[in-house]
């Protein structure tokens, strides 16, 4: 026990009570929020093409995405905060992708999974109906190349996104920075 305070001296429990110092963390509310968000990503079950099979494999038995706190695949955009665009986005699908993105509550994140969403992939040259990169439709946080990317790569992308959430907080990429027009 510390000595009794001298009469007239200011009482400062922070300095004087070491137990208190061990039990209090000083931080920003925002940091705590981001920390929580980071470990509870709810991806949307949004399979477009081949990559969706690898997304399923990532969530299934062997790779078990739940270990990284991102395994709760939701069928509704209104319940999810991560859109993994898994597969080729076509011109017919692009408005729907945008609409689903708009339906997701803020803060929200997106991963462009696979070469097709990164920039058109193998279809970039002669695939007249393929959008040459999903970043023309929605803002993208993480680009994940591969055709299709292996589950390990998707797990890595999600880990990278988690670190980014902590670094930048909130919406990692404000939409006005990307200059994306409405689809």
């Amino acid at each position: 026990m510390p000595d009794a305070p001298q009469p007239g001296a200011a009482v400062n429990p922070w300095d004087d009570d070491p137990e208190l110092r061990q039990n209090v963390i000083l931080t920003k509310i925002d940091w705590v929020k981001d920390w929580g968000r980071r470990h509870a990503l709810w991806p949307m079950a949004f399979g477009l093409a081949c990559c969706a099979m690898e997304m399923m494999a990532t969530a299934a038995t062997k790779y078990d995405l739940d270990r990284f706190g991102a395994g709760v695949f939701r069928a509704s955009p209104r319940q999810s905060d991560l859109m993994i665009v898994a597969g080729t986005v076509t011109h017919k699908m692009a408005p729907r992708v945008r609409r689903l993105w708009d339906q997701m509550p803020d803060p929200k994140y997106s991963i462009a999974m696979g070469a097709c969403t990164v920039g058109g992939g193998p279809y970039v040259k002669y695939g007249y109906h393929v959008v040459q990169g999903v970043d023309q439709v929605i803002p993208v946080d993480i680009y994940l190349p591969g055709c299709p990317p292996r589950p390990e790569a998707l797990i890595d992308a999600i880990r990278k996104l988690q670190f980014r959430i902590l670094e930048r907080g909130g919406n990692t990429l404000p939409e006005d920075e990307t200059g994306v027009g409405a689809a």
Binding site: A49, T88, T90, K92, M93, R96, K125, Y126, G127
Partner: peptide
């Protein structure tokens, strides 16, 4: 249908046979 139309037939007309098989 058609939300995933990826033009495999057009690509077949545009790339050599060897390159078409991955599509």
């Amino acid at each position: 249908v058609g939300n995933l139309h990826r033009c495999a037939e057009k690509i077949g007309e545009s790339v050599p046979y060897y390159q078409w098989l991955p599509y």
